[in-house]
Amino acid sequence: MHVTIARVHENLFNGEAESVSVPTTGGEITILKNHEPLAATLKPGTLTVRSGGETQSFTVEYGVLEVSGSTVTVLL
């Protein structure tokens, strides 16, 4: 699953990952492979990307999440 996390002026993460945990307005969700297409708004919290035993965290204030096919895009 390809994950892109970007801010307007910089690219925070761009690569393969096994799972992504995102704080959406509806509650915290974790996205794994083959998730159904989803578009959601985010609320303040922490976003975690796990790839091959490594985890990376990003602070979220506000943004949009999109899952389509095998790509996950988070715009902060």
């Binding site: 159904e36 297409p37 989803l38 578009a39 959601a40 949009v64 389509s68």
Partner: peptide, 25 residues
């Protein structure tokens, strides 16, 4: 850009709210 375009989206909480965040941005 990836051409695959899902015909159906689950939107949370609603399409309007996603657009509300996305459009002004």
């Amino acid at each position: 850009g990836n051409g695959e375009s899902p015909s159906f989206y689950t939107t949370e909480p609603s399409s309007e709210e996603v657009l509300d965040v996305l459009l002004p941005r």
